[in-house]
């Protein structure tokens, strides 16, 4: 777990910008823009538990969460 966390926080190597041709492609980047995101904005309508940000899950139900 520590190894995994280290890899995710620091990478396997420092990659200089001139060697980032592949990781800079549009399909490789993470984006919240309307054209760059790979996820539909309405996904949370079908999958309410997939939201990792946003407000309360206000279902209109007095007992539901």
């Amino acid at each position: 777990m520590v190894l995994t966390a280290t890899v995710f926080l620091a990478g396997c190597e420092t990659v200089p910008a001139y060697r980032q041709e592949h990781v800079s492609k549009a399909g490789m980047t993470f984006s919240d823009s309307l054209t760059g995101s790979n996820e539909a904005s309405l996904t949370a309508q079908l999958e309410p538990g997939s939201q990792t940000s946003g407000g309360a899950q206000a279902s209109g139900c007095s007992a539901c969460r």
Binding site: V7, F8, L9, A10, G11, C12, E13, V15, R19, Q20, E21, H22, V23, M28, T29, F30
Partner: peptide, 13 residues
């Protein structure tokens, strides 16, 4: 956190 792991790997957590 978002990282370039190698020349061909990019991650986000």
């Amino acid at each position: 956190t978002e990282n370039v792991l190698t020349e061909r790997l990019r991650s986000r957590a």
